[in-house]
Amino acid sequence: MNNPTPHDRVVADQGGTPDTTLPIVVYALHLAGIITGGLTSLIAVVMAYVYRGKGPAWLDEHYRYQIRTFWIALLYFAVSGLLTLVVIGFLTWLAAVVWLVIRCVKGLKALNERRAPDDVDTWLF
């Protein structure tokens, strides 16, 4: 049997579910990173690192998902940047953008349903 953490007790004492505003902001910053060249994604990953471990397990899984999304996206976009030298990088960059959007939408959907995202450890969606 799991013992509730102090934060779980505070949430229970407040009589509600944990605030999901911050994870929503992190997902939005990841999406804005498409336009800002990744600057807002960098802010998002710092926020996810700071706030992980401070909520219920399903919410912590969102932060873990967001952190993994940042590092995998960094790899995908770096490879795409290198591949632009042989023209195919533009297609892989587009695929990386689609991948990022799908991952963020899936995360937001799971967050809205107050559950952990599916397949947190996957490299795909």
Results as ranks from 00 to 15, higher is better:
residue 111 L to T: 02
residue 54 K to A: 08
residue 45 V to C: 11
residue 107 G to S: 06
residue 108 L to D: 00
residue 55 G to W: 11
residue 33 G to V: 13
residue 57 A to K: 14
residue 50 V to K: 11
residue 8 D to V: 10
residue 120 V to T: 14
residue 82 L to M: 11
residue 20 T to V: 13
residue 80 S to F: 12
residue 3 N to P: 01
residue 108 L to S: 01
residue 76 Y to R: 15
residue 92 T to Q: 05
residue 61 E to W: 04
residue 120 V to N: 07
residue 123 W to A: 12
residue 69 T to Y: 01
residue 58 W to H: 13
residue 117 P to W: 12
residue 36 T to D: 07
residue 108 L to I: 06
residue 83 L to N: 03
residue 9 R to I: 15
residue 91 L to I: 15
residue 101 V to W: 11
residue 111 L to Q: 02
residue 91 L to T: 08
residue 2 N to W: 10
residue 51 Y to S: 10
residue 53 G to K: 12
residue 39 L to T: 12
residue 113 E to V: 01
residue 95 A to I: 15
residue 77 F to G: 09
residue 106 K to L: 14
residue 64 R to C: 06
residue 38 G to R: 08
residue 26 V to Y: 06
residue 29 L to Y: 05
residue 117 P to E: 12
residue 124 L to S: 12
residue 107 G to Y: 04
residue 114 R to Q: 13
residue 58 W to S: 04
residue 11 V to M: 09
residue 72 I to N: 07
residue 63 Y to R: 00
residue 113 E to Q: 14
residue 74 L to W: 13
residue 62 H to I: 06
residue 112 N to A: 05
residue 22 L to Q: 09
residue 32 A to E: 01
residue 82 L to P: 00
residue 100 L to G: 06
residue 10 V to F: 15
residue 98 V to I: 15
residue 110 A to N: 05
residue 62 H to R: 03
residue 59 L to V: 13
residue 22 L to F: 08
residue 45 V to M: 11
residue 49 Y to P: 02
residue 94 L to N: 01
residue 24 I to E: 01
residue 71 W to D: 02
residue 71 W to L: 06
residue 86 V to F: 13
residue 45 V to N: 09
residue 71 W to A: 01
residue 43 I to C: 10
residue 14 Q to M: 14
residue 27 Y to Q: 03
residue 104 C to Q: 08
residue 2 N to G: 05
residue 10 V to E: 15
residue 6 P to W: 12
residue 3 N to C: 05
residue 83 L to F: 10
residue 38 G to P: 08
residue 93 W to P: 00
residue 70 F to H: 11
residue 122 T to C: 04
residue 26 V to D: 05
